[in-house]
Design a protein around this nucleic acid. Sequence first.
DNA 1: ATAGGGAGTTGCGTTTGCGCAACTCCTGTC
DNA 2: GACAGGAGTTGCGCAAACGCAACTCCCTAT
Lengths: 243, 243
Amino acid sequence: MSKAPSLSRQVLSNLELFRGLPPTALDEVLSCAATRSLARDFRVFNQGETRVRAHVLINGWIRISQSGSEGAQIVVRFIGPGDIFGAISLFTDRRYPADADTLTEATEASWSDRALLDLMNNHPQIAINAVRIVGQRLQEAQHRVRELATQRAERRVAHALLRLLRQVGTTTSRGIVIRFPLRRKDIADIAGTTLYSASRILSAWERAGWLKTLDRRIAVESLSELMRIAEDESGRDIAAPSP
Amino acid sequence: MSKAPSLSRQVLSNLELFRGLPPTALDEVLSCAATRSLARDFRVFNQGETRVRAHVLINGWIRISQSGSEGAQIVVRFIGPGDIFGAISLFTDRRYPADADTLTEATEASWSDRALLDLMNNHPQIAINAVRIVGQRLQEAQHRVRELATQRAERRVAHALLRLLRQVGTTTSRGIVIRFPLRRKDIADIAGTTLYSASRILSAWERAGWLKTLDRRIAVESLSELMRIAEDESGRDIAAPSP
DNA sequence: ATAGGGAGTTGCGTTTGCGCAACTCCTGTC
DNA sequence: GACAGGAGTTGCGCAAACGCAACTCCCTAT
């Protein structure tokens, strides 16, 4: 999995982490980057591993998942082109907090902790970008906490699907399709329910004609019905500005 | 609520956000800080408000809570002396994502978005500290997601209590006591369950003699029993280093 | 062809925990 | 001293969803 594909300044400047940097800085970033190609179904890093690096996915898709000591598992997020992953661990306990697996062939770039820290010190904009990225994820995570604490399984599955469609949906003749294959168990781990409940919910929706699964790939035909299930709790909150 | 208490370099240098800065930088930070005293039960900011600032709590305690459009509510976290709050919103959508209320009298310092950004640009260490802080919170939030998705109410309440004890517990003659008063509803909102379930669980524990509540203040006598309920899922995961 | 394995579905019984309603207890007020 | 209001408890019934087990379907390997 590693003929090293070369990385251009062009590509780099489109990554959120390196947005707003002058060309000279991009060169500096380039000079300490390591890139590699990854096969499908490849374990990029393991939960608990201590040889941490900061990763950016150039293309392909990766699933980040966490498992508890009792077999319980959740999908933390899906990483797409341009997303960083495994990078916060450099700043906390220096262990990856989750597993990363490729869902498709993929290309990643990565930096050592030392290199990233130096880059941030020389170019504060990188650190500021990082705060923004991690901050967004924190907000998402907190939203998910509220969802799990207050909403029912069916609604959570609807939300999970809608989020996926927004992030990785492609419109085709057969409706909006999620770009990569997903098992029922994956859906369950995203929505925080069990394989059985997820299966029941999805097959009810298939029966109602709102979606179809073909070869692990979910195609949604009636987005509006899904949104009706997900109802008002659509993601952003109503503002209540003070006087 | 605002005789302005003055802020010293000494205090500032102990805040995690400003750790590792040279004295001259601290002066710079000081010069654009606004401090104020807050009464008990005071709303510091509202969810959705757009006039955002970065806050640091100097002393006292604050509860950060989020409510959904259907009345459902969760406690996001408790803020203690030295913690930052309301600051990530400067980098994301420029709205506070939650409400902040004082639980005790308190003192806070705050900075405008402009000022904080300038400070970060001049002193990358601040931005790096911020990444670390937000990263830690992200990991906590993700841990909480897993907990909600996979564990039962009783176990979640046990975890919530243990977390609180670690963060704000004081050892007294009557066991380890949580520093500020908590209603059953608060416990429920922290653990992601209902007032009724939380009440049932806690009174069962009182009956078993593991804790007592006196005037909304929870005193834990038998920490080990609580830990037994919370069991192995103690917070950090088992490492599985790769070859 | 056939066996085996992974994924998905669904019937069924069981558990969990939600939530109303009724009650107690405590505290502060007039 | 009576009363209002907030907090907490608990009996009871009910809905959600978990999880086993049995079954189908499809793909691949021998």
